[in-house]
Computed example of a mutant assay.
Amino acid sequence: MTAESTRDREARIADELAIDLLDDEAHAPGGDILLARRLAMLGIAGVMISTAAIGVLHVVEPSRSLDPLSRTISEYELLSNGWIFDWGVVVLALASALILGAMVVREMVPLRSWGSMMTLLWCIGLVGLVVFPKHPGLDPSVAGRVHWTWTLIAFFSLPIGTCLICWRHRTPTGRWPRSAIRLSMMAGGWFAVLTVQTVLSAVTPIQAWRAVGLVERALSLTEMAVMVVLGLWVVHHSESPAVLDPAPDVSG
């Protein structure tokens, strides 16, 4: 075998390896990539709109009169401008569903998986806490208990779902899934603090509820950030695939 034929054979093998090493973006249908990207960007926009809407409630009357340290976010729903809260939460649920849909379309997570189911439960929980509003203070009514149940479901399901989705993607180059996992763990920490506050306020004379509003707001913001990171992960994963450069002529 001559030196020239050896170089030709090596160049052909290199081309074959390069093709094999292209990630799945290069082989996915273009329509799926475009659809996933659009769904993710709409979802990110929805999360940002929801965050802004709930943030506005902290600076306009009459909702600004609520103490953000001790009063829960859900109590905005009971005021005359509570419709802003309702629509903001519904938009967040729809935006989260869009981002999940983008991940399914992009085949980043199967629809029939625990990660998808837990994230979908987050969306359903958000709608549930709007449909069943709470009453001011300690609310022993059926609607109040249902509201609290949906709130718990929403708050704990997203961190679990995100970790299930992202765990197998936590490679050194997987910046977005690793960030989503870190934020989910942070949200889990806030949820644990919220649970401890609730138990202490119920069974001890400690007035832990005085900081429940602050913790709930921190938890909500963290979980909104989780959804934004998941959306950005889809956008990054849906960038136009690189085209292989022609193999250099090594025969001359």
Score class of each variant (00 low, 15 high):
residue 135 H to I: 04
residue 205 P to R: 09
residue 56 V to A: 08
residue 48 M to N: 12
residue 68 P to F: 08
residue 90 V to N: 06
residue 1 M to R: 13
residue 132 F to L: 05
residue 56 V to T: 11
residue 227 M to W: 12
residue 108 M to Q: 01
residue 56 V to I: 14
residue 118 M to T: 03
residue 213 G to R: 07
residue 209 W to P: 00
residue 96 S to W: 12
residue 137 G to A: 01
residue 70 S to Y: 01
residue 100 L to F: 06
residue 117 M to D: 01
residue 57 L to C: 07
residue 29 P to A: 15
residue 84 I to N: 03
residue 21 L to E: 15
residue 41 M to R: 15
residue 51 T to H: 02
residue 137 G to W: 01
residue 178 R to L: 00
residue 127 V to E: 03
residue 160 I to F: 06
residue 69 L to Y: 11
residue 19 I to W: 04
residue 124 I to D: 01
residue 33 I to G: 02
residue 54 I to Y: 06
residue 29 P to Q: 12
residue 5 S to F: 12
residue 190 W to R: 01
residue 89 V to E: 03
residue 107 E to N: 14
residue 37 R to E: 00
residue 110 P to C: 00
residue 217 R to N: 05
residue 210 R to P: 07
residue 111 L to D: 07
residue 105 V to A: 03
residue 119 T to L: 14
residue 223 E to K: 04
residue 52 A to Q: 11
residue 163 C to A: 10
residue 41 M to N: 13
residue 6 T to D: 15
residue 10 E to K: 08
residue 15 D to C: 08
residue 19 I to T: 14
residue 241 P to W: 10
residue 95 A to L: 07
residue 53 A to G: 12
residue 184 S to D: 00
residue 29 P to Y: 07
residue 73 I to C: 05
residue 72 T to M: 15
residue 138 L to A: 13
residue 70 S to T: 09
residue 69 L to V: 02
residue 160 I to C: 05
residue 120 L to H: 00
residue 127 V to Y: 08
residue 224 M to Y: 13
residue 147 H to I: 08
residue 236 H to V: 11
residue 199 V to L: 13
residue 109 V to Q: 02
residue 233 W to T: 02
residue 201 S to F: 07
residue 171 T to Y: 01
residue 128 G to Q: 09
residue 238 S to D: 12
residue 201 S to A: 09
residue 81 N to A: 05
residue 132 F to G: 05
residue 45 A to W: 10
residue 102 A to V: 00
residue 246 P to G: 12
residue 165 I to A: 04
residue 10 E to H: 14
residue 183 L to T: 00
residue 50 S to Q: 06
residue 15 D to I: 04
residue 19 I to P: 04
residue 93 A to Q: 05
residue 86 D to W: 05
residue 76 Y to F: 15
residue 214 L to Y: 04
residue 147 H to Q: 03
residue 156 F to I: 09
residue 190 W to E: 01
residue 113 S to N: 09
residue 210 R to N: 12
residue 17 L to S: 10
residue 37 R to H: 07
residue 198 T to P: 03
residue 210 R to G: 02
residue 105 V to L: 03
residue 150 W to Q: 06
residue 75 E to N: 11
residue 141 S to G: 06
residue 158 L to T: 05
residue 243 V to E: 08
residue 80 S to C: 06
residue 188 G to A: 12
